[in-house]
Design a protein around this nucleic acid. Structure first.
Lengths: 165, 165
DNA sequence: CTTGGAGTGTCAACAAGGCTGACGTACTGT
DNA sequence: ACAGTACGTCAGCCTTGTTGACACTCCAAG
């Protein structure tokens, strides 16, 4: 940040360094998804179900359109996942009060339980990584991730953070 | 940050903060893969082709088994991808010299060119993120990613780094 | 020299989860 | 009354992962 040198911060960004970052991102993301994937594999679910459950839990009562916007998939794709979750009693879909075209999505008790299992697994790993790396590293980690998102996604992420807490 | 105690700010890692990290990871990874995905979509290729090309470029002459180990997929899955790349003249497969059962994989000129296009796109984004976040943040970013990998994957990543430079 | 096992390729079948296109229904707002 | 929005669904396609089975080449040990 407030560094005395000029050239050295540019030297830091060699292609080799960048490639290491790219590969680290690839391997880390695999680790990041490995734990919930293992849990999901024991049921008839996949990552798509996890994502739906996660964001419904994050913003209970959210609409289908909103979820489509966050997840960036087609409604056909989301609907397939959502349908199985509703059939299995993990998600409830209620007709909107003000606008009856909309469906508001909520997790059932069972849905909340699964969400907790999945995100617990993920949090354990993230907490361990944070602990190993130290507080300063965590701040840097978050800063780089934010900068790596598309502007649109950052918007969605911010919206979630503001609305969520 | 402005805490009375130093390293123990780790105690402030609430579930909410961890969830923010999880979501940041999700959105950032989407951004991270978006650029090469766009290029690949214009051809008949997907992410699997990108991964194969990347790691063959990283370690020219690598064997199929080694690639299977790094990528963590089945040989049938890799073979399908590899076959199209060889047919399209992006990858060459040579019978091993010392052990003729092995196939040593190399990128052709055309393969190198595509690899460059793909990783350039990815590097541009990563470079921008690094620049926005600053050198200290980058160090932290890398530390957290390393800690987030599985031990096995870290081994593979280290092997690549040692052999690659 | 035979034989077990490793490295590789390939066929078949299947599943998850993306996609497009098309169509229908219910509802809203003008 | 009517155009547009929100949602669901059918049908079909693609990529990329999986298992299982089989064949071939080749190295190394008995």
């Amino acid at each position: 940040m407030g560094d005395t040198y000029g050239g050295e911060s540019l030297l830091f960004l060699t292609d080799e360094q960048l490639r290491q970052g790219i590969e680290a991102m690839y391997f880390a993301y695999r680790g990041f998804t490995a734990d919930p994937d293992r849990i999901l594999a024991t049921m008839a679910y996949g990552r798509a179900h996890h994502r739906a459950i996660h964001f419904i839990n994050r913003a209970p009562g959210t609409t289908v359109t909103n979820l489509l916007d966050i997840l960036g998939v087609t409604k056909q794709s989301l609907n397939r996942v959502l349908r199985t979750l509703i059939e299995d009693g993990l998600v409830e879909s209620h007709v909107g009060k003000t606008d009856k075209r909309e469906r508001n999505l909520y997790l059932t008790e069972e849905g909340v339980a699964l969400e907790a299992r999945l995100s617990d697994a993920q949090r354990v790993r993230m907490r361990a990584a944070y602990r190993d790396a130290g507080p300063e590293a965590v701040a840097g980690f978050r800063r780089v991730l934010e900068a790596m998102m598309d502007t649109e996604m950052r918007r969605k992420n911010d919206a979630l953070r503001d609305g969520g807490s």
